[in-house]
Design a protein around this nucleic acid. Structure first.
Lengths: 334, 334
DNA sequence: GTGAAAGCGCTAACAT
DNA sequence: ATGTTAGCGCTTTCAC
């Protein structure tokens, strides 16, 4: 392992003080153009790069943002990550990635990792931890952005970006209702999910609006993957063979429904109409192409970094609580 | 932003020296069980957590591994990331994520970020940079793992994990040949790609073995996404309408071929057989289900971290150059 | 325009 | 078993 040159190596080589090198490296005033250039040249020639660690210790800023998410493998989140990276990169920031595996214990650990690493800010995707716990952690970040979670109590250092799931669910049900569906099931996803609650609200409100009686047996809890959708759809069909439409918690769950329909010989969309959430890349490729409620995830990630940036820049007019309106993408499955 | 307690806060509160606190926090010998417990209690009560930054500066170890990849959004890489995270987490390490967007300039910048952040090790996915440049960077890491790239010159601090693409391509062609295909095209992906070269080698060797004449017009360069596959397939069909099988650079390219076939009214697999590479989640869902050459990416990521771990642990018998044998997953498209 | 001193929070090495 | 000293690589503050 090669030893990296330090600031003192450069200083010695250029016969100047540490401070002059520091000033040169940070484009700070107080140096003649000549010495500045000389220092920079020598630094360059030595291959000197300032240590981010030392700098972070001295300044208490790491130019790093923590990104906490349940699963990078999930396109929903990887898109957000990409969007965040987009603008982080343009700001000269780096991303620290922590997975939570949807596990509340790992969430704590993840937040602690971010603390230890002294990230300047954090983007927390769908945190499940109770507010007081989150609070305890985020009070050590300069700024944090909550994705898909509302604030329990307002803070000047905590923004939120939420997808308006209620609206999205209404969009979906409205479409199904217009097509004449009366028996509509909702595979609602995992119990603790926030978006589940919001979508369920939209589901119920839309039913009421369209004068469709609400039957709680048509709302099933399921894990948020294909297996979950398959399982839920299978039980659903065995108990209520007369349902004609299914709103799925997300696209993967919807594909689980596809699978179940295939096994049971039910055709989509003729016998069963299916609508998903998310619009993952898969949705437009699989047959039948999946109708789904889409929100722009990459933009979500970008916006998250941009509020952070606005905060850092001391910008006055920051929209602290943003909401993203999804749209219904109609394809073949409904 | 709340001030975090430091080691001296704990020391003062417990009326001991900094070192005792340090020893307690790191479970190091040289403390009576009583004081140890007392210190730990006070630390806990104060909410003290050691600063990773300060620790990294003092010890020159950050317990952080840099993960460089072209695009988190690509399932191929996000799976690797997940695998790496799996075992990093179990080792108490964290991941630093940097995107390169397949851009060679951004690769340099990414590597520099990792340097600045003083990561202990790096996992570099498909680095495109010339060896000497890579070398310059990785000589500052304790250890690095190259994914999908061979070593130009052996080093005791640099391991590789490669997918045996040549073998994979042979597997595919063998299958197609056995089914009687003679006119087989290869949508080979981008020019600079290493796996392209290896797959092309396998493609050619297999053709020769099966006594199929090689026609260079049947090998097309394309971008590694759906659009690339669509475009390449479209030109291919307009020039060589008689080809009966296509080996695609990856699954997304294969789906591009699907798209083209749909537009041209060609049926898969009857008129055109298609085989992809990767086996992304999509592959088993889309209709017709895609036959593809699969390597276990999550395991790849896990293995990468495990060689790193072995190195850190001073393990003697590390397999420095591992290769992962892909298998042919036969589904409906070929 | 330039530099010296002190300190960020921690640990390694050396006392006691 | 516990403490002291010095230093990791940088920046802030203040002096010249």
């Amino acid at each position: 392992m090669e030893k990296r040159p330090t600031i003192s190596d450069v200083a010695r080589e250029a016969s100047v003080s540490l401070m002059s090198v520091s000033r040169a490296m940070n484009n700070r005033p107080g140096l003649s153009d000549k010495t500045r250039k000389r220092i920079l040249d020598i630094a360059n020639q030595l291959g000197y790069r300032p240590s981010g660690v030392a700098r972070a210790l001295a300044t208490n800023r790491s130019f790093t943002v923590g990104l906490m998410m349940p699963d990078v493998t999930n396109p929903f989140f990887s898109q957000i990550a990409k969007g965040a990276e987009d603008v982080a990169y343009s700001m000269g920031y780096n991303l620290f990635l922590v997975n939570t595996d949807e596990d509340i214990e790992r969430e704590k650990i993840a937040l602690n990792s971010l603390l230890d690493k002294q990230v300047d800010g954090a983007i927390l995707c769908s945190p499940r931890l109770p507010w007081e716990q989150i609070l305890k952690h985020i009070s050590h970040f300069q700024f944090t952005v909550l994705i898909n979670r509302e604030l329990d109590e307002p803070r000047s250092d905590c923004a939120t970006i939420n997808i308006d799931d209620t609206f999205g669910a209404k969009l979906a049900i409205e479409h199904l209702s217009n097509r004449g569906h009366k028996k509509i099931a909702f595979l609602a996803g995992p119990d603790e999910s926030t978006s589940r609650k919001r979508r369920l609200r939209g589901f119920m409100q839309a039913l009421e609006y369209h004068k469709i009686p609400y039957d709680e047996n048509l709302v099933l809890t399921c894990s948020s993957d294909m297996a979950g959708g398959f399982k839920a759809a299978t039980t659903l069909f065995s108990n209520h063979d007369d349902i004609t439409a299914i709103l799925a918690y997300n696209d993967m769950v919807a594909f689980g429904v596809f699978q179940a329909c295939e096994e049971l010989g039910k055709t989509i969309p003729d016998q069963v109409a299916v609508i998903g959430f998310d619009d993952i890349p898969l949705a437009s490729i699989i047959k039948p192409k999946l109708s789904t409620v889409r929100a722009n995830k990459r933009e979500l990630g970008q916006r998250a970094m941009r509020v952070f940036q606005a905060f850092i820049d001391g910008n006055e007019d920051i929209t602290m609580d943003q909401t993203i309106l999804p749209s219904l993408v109609l394809r073949k499955s409904a």
